[in-house]
Amino acid sequence: MQIHINAQDGVPIYLQIVNQIRYQLASARLKPGQELPPIRTLAQSLLINPNTVARAYKELEQAGIVEKRRTVGTYITARRSPLARRERRRILVERIDQLLAEARQMDFDLRDVVRLLNVRHKVLRKSNRKEVGQ
């Protein structure tokens, strides 16, 4: 798991961790059942306070994204709970809002956006197939 902290971008460090883990899970870079590094290890490698990592893990636990298994460690929740699905939907809605705002600013209307979405979907599907075939 790769996390990058920027102490100068104004977003609290614990939230940077939460957001990156959410994003990596949503984009399947993290898989259900996968173990997260122990708090101490992640704190050491990111050079941040262990309490900050603990706070991030706690937030993720409350959102149903990770679960603590007794004393053994912290894992990405195995089965996607409705909460996790709601979470993925939330991230997607956020991105769509951004996309729509930018599109409007650049004078594209909704029809243009939908058409482009379809085009890009086909392009991406094609390139994915190529990658798999190689």
Partner: peptide
Amino acid sequence: RDILGSIIRTVAD
């Protein structure tokens, strides 16, 4: 980096 690492190790361990 060594200095920050030592600080974190001191409180974490």
